[in-house]
Amino acid sequence: MAKKGDLGKGDEVSWKSHGQNVSGKIKKKITARSRAAGRTVDASREEPQYEVESDKTGRSAVHKPGALRKKGEAS
């Protein structure tokens, strides 16, 4: 799992969604309470979240750093 400082815009990552691995890219780091991917994201500088876009569907989602795995990292 990724640490807070390990991720950045454009990084290729994967995450679990409904029991399957999904791959995509980070669109942006969210560091304040805002709306993203159709919902309110309660993020802060201390607890950032990341908006990601699925390679397969093109849909956006928001995840905490611990839910994301950089491509090429061991499981």
Score class of each variant (00 low, 15 high):
M1C: 11
M1G: 15
A2F: 01
K4L: 11
G5P: 10
D6R: 07
D6H: 07
D6E: 15
D6T: 08
D6A: 13
D6W: 10
L7D: 07
L7K: 03
L7R: 01
G8E: 10
K9R: 14
D11I: 01
D11C: 12
D11P: 02
E12V: 14
E12W: 06
V13G: 10
V13S: 14
S14A: 14
W15A: 15
K16D: 13
K16I: 10
K16G: 06
S17L: 14
H18A: 05
H18D: 07
G19E: 01
Q20P: 00
N21C: 03
N21Y: 02
S23K: 08
S23G: 05
G24R: 12
K25C: 06
I26M: 09
K27T: 01
K28T: 07
K29H: 05
K29T: 15
I30A: 09
I30D: 06
T31Y: 01
A32C: 00
A32I: 03
R33H: 05
R33P: 10
R33A: 02
R33E: 13
R35F: 10
R35E: 15
A36S: 15
A37G: 04
A37R: 02
G38Y: 12
R39C: 07
R39V: 05
R39T: 07
R39I: 04
A43M: 00
A43E: 03
E46V: 12
E46R: 11
P48Q: 00
P48A: 05
Y50D: 06
E51K: 02
V52F: 00
E53I: 04
E53M: 11
S54N: 14
D55T: 00
K56W: 03
K56E: 14
K56N: 12
T57Q: 09
G58T: 06
S60N: 08
A61Y: 09
A61T: 07
V62L: 04
H63L: 12
P65A: 13
G66Q: 04
A67D: 11
A67F: 11
L68N: 06
L68H: 08
R69A: 01
R69G: 02
R69I: 00
K70Y: 07
K70N: 10
K71M: 05
G72Q: 03
G72I: 05
A74W: 00
S75I: 04
S75G: 10
S75D: 09
